[in-house]
């Protein structure tokens, strides 16, 4: 790792879908330090989910390189260096809450006792005690997403990749889970890359907000968030919070994100 503190390092990354087709990402350079909480924000179709999937080696970049923990992304995936949370909880109906959380531990070959102990901690961490034996379809959307987060964290990955995890939830649940996520982040000390559509969510959660331009997605600006830690519901009411929200909004305007929003929603579907 050559004394490099970066958990994720992206150099000259581009992605083109299809032969000579849609250019989704262009010349992305980004470093994420250990313990950071970085949000990717941008209009629909700016390739932020694509970028997340490339970091996770779920799809391959066309050009450029991604290193995670000083290793190529593929090696990092094979070493199970990251946990991933999608917008949909992606839980398995045939598994109970505890068994869903234990899935990655089974893949890692942990023995039963070790698994049970870790799962118990995780259930506590995401405050789902009493629901251990429930099946996913017996839970509310917010609870399902908490299971999904617990599963991603269960094997203590160095990096947590989150793709609009609260996008499908109502505002109240979303704000509560935001606070919960921050608490978990503080407790576990993990590094988070978080894709979102919501400016206020990005500012509230992050240590840095990466603003992306519309297609082809580029890093249009980076807004460091200097709101004090630990953040609480009151953080949302500080004048500094509103200044930062405005700053992010203005950099989105500057790249014309709002104007192209509509024409690009189809491009996202292609991607």
């Amino acid at each position: 790792m050559n004394g490099d503190a970066s958990v994720v390092s992206i150099k000259g990354l581009s992605k083109v879908f299809g032969k000579g087709g849609v250019s989704a990402l262009q010349g992305i350079d980004l470093d994420v330090e250990r313990g950071e909480f970085v949000s990717l924000i941008g209009p629909s179709g700016c390739g932020k989910s694509t970028l997340l999937r490339i970091i996770g080696d779920i799809i391959d970049p066309t050009d450029g390189e991604v290193t995670v923990n000083g290793k190529p992304a593929r090696r990092a995936r094979l070493d199970r260096d990251y946990g991933i949370v999608f917008q949909a909880p992606v839980l398995y109906d045939w598994r109970t809450v505890v068994k869903n959380i234990a899935l990655p531990l089974e893949m890692l070959g942990w023995d039963r006792a070790k698994r049970a102990a870790r799962v118990r901690d995780m259930v506590e961490l995401v405050e789902l005690s009493g629901f251990e034996k429930h099946h996913p379809w017996q839970l509310s959307g917010g609870m399902q997403q908490r299971v999904s987060i617990a599963r991603a964290l269960s094997f203590s990955p160095a990096l947590l990749l989150m793709d609009e995890p609260f996008g499908a939830l109502d505002e109240m649940t979303r704000e509560r889970l935001n606070l919960e996520l921050l608490r978990i982040w503080t407790e576990t000390g993990s590094t988070v890359i978080f894709v979102t559509h919501s400016i206020s969510e990005a500012v509230f959660l992050s240590t840095r907000v990466v603003v992306m331009s519309p297609r082809p997605g580029r890093v249009a600006g980076i807004v460091p968030v200097d709101l004090p830690q630990p953040r609480t519901a009151a953080s949302r009411e500080q004048p500094r919070f509103f200044e930062l929200v405005t700053q992010v909004r203005e950099s989105l305007h500057a790249v014309g994100a709002d104007e192209v929003e509509e024409t690009l929603s189809t491009a996202e579907e292609i991607a």
């Binding site: 999937r53 996770g56 779920i58 995936r77 094979l78 070493d79 199970r80 990251y82 946990g83 991933i84 999608f86 949909a88 992606v90 398995y92 899935l103 990655p104 893949m107 890692l108």
Partner: peptide, 14 residues
């Protein structure tokens, strides 16, 4: 099968 379930398994190097 939901493609994301497969992506999830892929993220575990399954």
């Amino acid at each position: 099968v939901d493609p994301e379930s497969i992506e999830l398994m892929r993220s575990y190097a399954a």
